[in-house]
Design a protein around this nucleic acid. Structure first.
Lengths: 208, 208
DNA sequence: CGATGACATGTCACAACGTACATGTCGTTG
DNA sequence: CAACGACATGTACGTTGTGACATGTCATCG
């Protein structure tokens, strides 16, 4: 249901076509809530059928811009104010990190180095964008300033991940000679043992 | 495809049943890669059919433990080493933040306060778990120490979000009297205007 | 005027995911 | 032994999301 509300939220800024919205999801929002155009177009049809948006105008090349209705605006607001937040992420990058022990040290170092570079670079580009907002280059309206808060969240998450990857490279966990010892493709210790699975180590505290 | 590899990764630690795996996804991994038990059971069947895992043992109450095969182990390793990382997140919390400008100041403050508390608390509980790993309470094996890296990532992301929510509450963006001015449920400025959508403000830098 | 490329929208089939429901086992406790 | 709750696995169905393909428009450039 998040895509539905994401689209309504973007349309609350003003009329836009499916193509516009797809571009915004592709560019700024891709790292936060990925969405491809087929899903966007079909969701728009559904929203229109439900009366939450309506056709605003037709442009060249079959362009169809939608505009949010009062009902739609009320629905985003209701979602924002009343609907409980889903705190679960979905981050492949973090999932992978739980299996780093299966990687050969060389591959792991290479991977972590790439990750650090990626996150640092992305954070920097977001930070630059945030700074340009701070300089007032996007106007000083209420909306712009509030969106600045959202950008800040993305910046901080990416910076945190960049710092994490660097930390992982530098920490003595990596430097330790036992950990650093190269090994072949032999099965990891503990795997395929007949008795019930190893320790319960990876069971962390209950998740939200 | 990530669930598939997530299951293989967990089974690389040693044999486990669908129930065990579902619990681990529910507890530690829920905030990183959510998965319900029906999905896990059906994925296990598929993995078994593909020869990446095999039945290890049968226990009481129809319990069926699986064990990873050589092919399965090779497949996780291939995934970890060769498959490109998908850097897109999926965070409802961040998506919402792009629409904060639609919220009434009171609701927004309440929401941000809740968010700060949630992330701080979750980060703390993860931090405590990480510390117990550092104290060696889960053993000092290669696996445990490497998994410590994954926990650290989760800690840092949650701490970053907690700090962000506090920052958002404290920043003068919030204190500004114009922003703080209460308003009714009237449509936001810019919405439903006849001409094509407002400024292009929210278009950030290209996402990864 | 033909080729090219960005614009713009869509269909279709399938894979992934979530909720609700169904079933049965086993240990504990009253 | 009856009731209960945790253990354990599954089916069925609907929704969400993805990848591949298909179609047509318009501006620009040679």
């Amino acid at each position: 249901m998040s895509l539905r509300h994401g689209l309504l939220g973007l349309l609350a800024e003003g009329p836009a076509s499916g193509y516009d919205l797809a571009r915004r999801f592709q560019e700024g929002l891709n790292s936060i809530w990925p969405a491809q155009h087929p899903q966007i177009y079909s969701e728009l049809s559904r929203l229109a059928k439900a009366g939450l948006i309506e056709v605003d105008s037709h442009g060249p090349r079959r362009r169809t811009a939608y505009r949010i209705t009062d009902a739609g605006l009320a629905e985003v607001r209701r979602w924002l104010a009343e609907e409980p937040v889903d705190h679960s992420f979905r981050m492949e990058s973090l999932l992978r990190s739980f299996f780093f022990w299966l990687m050969e040290p060389g591959d792991l170092k290479r991977r972590l180095t790439e990750e650090a570079a990626y996150y640092a670079q992305f954070a920097a580009s977001l930070r630059e964008y945030a700074d340009s907002k701070d300089r007032g280059e996007w106007g000083t309206g209420e909306r712009t300033r509030a969106q600045r808060i959202g950008v800040e969240a993305a910046v901080r998450v990416n910076e945190a991940l960049a710092a994490w990857a660097r930390w992982a490279l530098e920490t003595d966990l990596m430097a330790d000679e036992e950990f650093g010892r190269p090994r072949g493709a032999a099965p990891a210790e503990g795997a395929r043992s007949p008795e019930r699975g190893g320790d319960t180590a990876a069971r962390g505290p209950a998740g939200g």
